[in-house]
Design a protein around this nucleic acid. Sequence first.
DNA 1: TCGGCAGAAATCGTATGCAATCTTTTCCAA
DNA 2: TTGGAAAAGATTGCATACGATTTCTGCCGA
Lengths: 237, 237
Amino acid sequence: MNIADQTFPAIDGANEDRAQAIRDQLRDAIVDRRLAPGTKLSEGEVGTLFDVSRTVARAALQMLSFEGLVRTERNRGAFVANPSPEEARQVFASRRLIEPGIAIAAAGRMTPADVAAFKTQLEEEGRFIAERGPTARRSEIKASGDFHLLLAAVAGNVILQRFMEELVARSSLVIALYGRSGISSCGHNEHMQILEALEAGNAERASALMLHHIDHIEADLDLRVRSGPALRQALEF
Amino acid sequence: MNIADQTFPAIDGANEDRAQAIRDQLRDAIVDRRLAPGTKLSEGEVGTLFDVSRTVARAALQMLSFEGLVRTERNRGAFVANPSPEEARQVFASRRLIEPGIAIAAAGRMTPADVAAFKTQLEEEGRFIAERGPTARRSEIKASGDFHLLLAAVAGNVILQRFMEELVARSSLVIALYGRSGISSCGHNEHMQILEALEAGNAERASALMLHHIDHIEADLDLRVRSGPALRQALEF
DNA sequence: TCGGCAGAAATCGTATGCAATCTTTTCCAA
DNA sequence: TTGGAAAAGATTGCATACGATTTCTGCCGA
């Protein structure tokens, strides 16, 4: 999987920050697994693809590097991150710490509009599960992450929201690398249960369900080190 | 307070990343309050001060902007962040969520070397409290933050560690803006109590103490909006 | 055939130039 | 004096150029 094989919508050269737009495109591609972990993202290529100079492409890659989605090596370039099992565990440890609290905060702030937004989101999620094929699978992983992001938005703390954006994006990478099965339908059920608790204003229950939900996601991963770490490093694409 | 009044150690033009070195210098200056909130950080000036091109200075400022220490406005430039009371509350809400968990994780991983490091840190903290003068006050705030950063390092989760680095840095800004008194000596006592609990392996107690500690720090702030938000915005340096 | 070395090609790090945008100053009329 | 418009100045956004570093390639000797 090479970045040159991807097609990206043109960046509207309007007043918006173009580097940010490119970052968003690339992030989507990484989270959707259209760009595999380890793929090289050279400044020149990214620039050509989006029709901007290396300066702008570089800025976009720097942003992704801050988010942990891209790893940059001096004088070598940027690569889609290839999280280690240990990193994967830390991602989920972080989520276990943060998301139950976010659920509690969100429970106290849910508006009818929020409930409606969640229902729309969950419907879409359900549709992707029903469909078959790799495209649907990708959309499904994305939608599953969107549930958590929506929750973070409702919680109303922009700092935590940004942390969650990073954690959800990194989780997608981790699931891509270490995911075992299609536990997703189970996750969908759990999302619905969490929404019920939120709608009922039952913060405690929402929080507990969230904790279990994260445990379930992580339990579906196979985080055993497959071979000696030296070999793994050497093979790192 | 203008950035041009500051003196910075020269960046060693060696193999290290120069933008990163500049970011660290600027972050220290912001956290130490040598650069006041609202101070303009123009690319050209930063570049001249550190003897690098605007390209490198720009990269450093972009990093600080990601950390929330610097706010950038398109076509206008970068300014030391000026967090609103609401933002301040969110910083502390985030810390209340994360730090008790970090304390628990750290309690299970403390080595004798860690304990020694904490003791050294707390001694230094104590020294700054004893001293008088604005310089000592700055060092004291910095040292107080270092306690929390050390704890995050011991906890062993690099993701959470990075989150904490951001939160501690932003807290320094918030304290600079909204801090009322020298509650710091009280904070120092609390740090010592937390260390005792950690040393005893009492994770629950360490966690509870941490939560109270954060509450105390926030309680020392005066987060009332001083004037109409419109006026405040207008006066924003 | 294989390892390794030299040159070529690719890629990155950084400085600099130019256009676009914003800010400040100047100046004139009310 | 005050308001406002226009010019001058400063600063950013972006592209491009060039040296430095790394990677690739082809060739040679063992």
